[in-house]
Amino acid sequence: MSYPTPDSRLAETLLSHSCALQPGENIMIQLVGLNGIGLVRALVEQVRALGANPFVRIEDTEINRSLLETGDEAFWKLQAAADQLPLMKLMDAFVGIRASENIYENSRVSPAQNKAYGEHFLKPVHFEERVNNTKWVILRYPSPAFAMNAKMPTREFAEFYYRACLLDYAKLREAMLPLEARLRKTNEIWLKGEGTDIRFSVKGQNWIPCFGERNIPDGELFSAPILDSVNGEITYAPSVYQGKPFEFVKLRVKDGLVTDFDSSDNDALQSILDTDPGARRFGEFSFGTNPVIEKPMYDILFDEKIYGSNHLTLGQDYEIASNGNDSSVHWDLVCIGADVYLDGELIRKGRLFVTEDLMGLNPEVFLGSAD
């Protein structure tokens, strides 16, 4: 008797749950980094067994870095128009596996080079076409380097990785429903914590519960603040953006616009904020609710799902929960452990929900009552 491997189980979740792939559909499987080839093999086998059509792209991170360092506006326009955009338009689904073993690979890419890539390739191919017109899912793949960022032994990290990724998402969805119902009736959100005191309106905004359909691991509930309503200050946990590490970021905001800031790398932060007008405004707000993920590990696909966290995102909004912000930046910065008030009512004290209807999202309840 053969037993399913972790990769085959993960592939099944990605195809059946995240992408709901159907016979005859086209799916792009993109592997960035040469680690993770076993998952690609499992995906291709299952896609073909289903009668669907895989289109496989395997990209080396050092080659990608070289292209970023030498690419200009004309180069990225050509790459999008001649290759990736026409192909993406043929896709019904997309699985993006991020398997780089060096999160700082692109740390020397200049702001101008990042801007050219973001505006003329990433935005048209991914933000506009893939995000809005395919059933897509993005995930990382475990490695010793990834374990090192998480400050965990390699084997222990792999076990943690699959527990976080293969969470009972149907159960998580049920636990999220009361929070979603509250948020749909909320006018104002207030976050109050150490270094954070910020308010904004979400009146009339759409809310999207995420339970393994677009990210793996998952566990977020997102919308977008009313564009000019954000006021106050917010302090974020460690983050990496465009290959550049930030040990902390603190923003001061007036009428939706970042007016002042501090961080562990103010020159790099200044460059990101100056990318375009939308980079100083916010395009997303979210609750992190994955009960397995406890602390930052310099990887936003995990960090934005940390239980007891929120992210208030600089830059581009999502069409499905729009507030009108337009930018080539989308930086999911995470604030952990702030008290959360909805229209003046405290619903989360630190990292734990305190109202009876929301306690099912607390780790000791969710994991303690697992089947």
Results as ranks from 00 to 15, higher is better:
residue 58 I to D: 00
residue 61 T to L: 09
residue 64 N to R: 14
residue 37 I to T: 06
residue 36 G to Q: 08
residue 35 N to P: 10
residue 67 L to Q: 14
residue 44 V to K: 08
residue 34 L to D: 13
residue 56 V to A: 02
residue 36 G to M: 06
residue 47 V to F: 06
residue 66 S to Y: 00
residue 37 I to V: 09
residue 35 N to A: 15
residue 44 V to Y: 06
residue 39 L to V: 10
residue 42 A to P: 00
residue 39 L to R: 11
residue 36 G to K: 11
residue 67 L to N: 11
residue 60 D to F: 00
residue 41 R to K: 14
residue 37 I to A: 13
residue 65 R to T: 03
residue 34 L to Q: 15
residue 29 I to R: 04
residue 50 L to Q: 11
residue 42 A to Q: 13
residue 39 L to A: 11
residue 67 L to H: 13
residue 65 R to H: 02
residue 62 E to Y: 05
residue 27 I to G: 09
residue 46 Q to K: 14
residue 40 V to T: 15
residue 64 N to Q: 11
residue 51 G to K: 10
residue 53 N to I: 14
residue 56 V to Q: 01
residue 33 G to F: 05
residue 36 G to I: 11
residue 51 G to V: 04
residue 55 F to A: 11
residue 30 Q to N: 10
residue 51 G to D: 07
residue 36 G to E: 06
residue 38 G to K: 10
residue 63 I to H: 05
residue 42 A to T: 04
residue 59 E to C: 02
residue 43 L to G: 10
residue 52 A to Q: 03
residue 57 R to W: 13
residue 47 V to C: 01
residue 42 A to Y: 05
residue 34 L to Y: 14
residue 60 D to G: 08
residue 34 L to A: 11
residue 59 E to Y: 02
residue 33 G to W: 02
residue 63 I to Q: 11
residue 64 N to E: 09
residue 31 L to R: 15
residue 33 G to H: 02
residue 42 A to M: 06
residue 49 A to H: 01
residue 64 N to T: 08
residue 39 L to S: 12
residue 58 I to C: 07
residue 35 N to L: 02
residue 43 L to W: 05
residue 34 L to S: 15
residue 35 N to F: 05
residue 42 A to G: 04
residue 29 I to N: 03
residue 38 G to C: 02
residue 57 R to H: 14
residue 56 V to C: 01
residue 48 R to K: 14
residue 34 L to M: 15
residue 51 G to C: 06
residue 29 I to A: 05
residue 66 S to Q: 10
residue 35 N to W: 08
residue 38 G to D: 13
residue 64 N to V: 06
residue 39 L to E: 09
residue 29 I to T: 13
residue 63 I to M: 12
residue 64 N to A: 10
residue 32 V to F: 12
residue 27 I to K: 11
residue 33 G to N: 04
residue 51 G to H: 09
residue 56 V to M: 01
residue 41 R to N: 09
residue 47 V to Y: 09
residue 50 L to F: 03
residue 55 F to G: 00
residue 56 V to N: 01
residue 52 A to M: 07
residue 45 E to D: 15
residue 63 I to C: 01
residue 28 M to P: 00
residue 68 L to T: 03
residue 48 R to V: 15
residue 58 I to F: 01
residue 47 V to D: 03
residue 64 N to P: 00
residue 44 V to E: 10
residue 59 E to N: 11
residue 35 N to G: 12
residue 39 L to W: 13
residue 52 A to V: 04
residue 31 L to D: 04
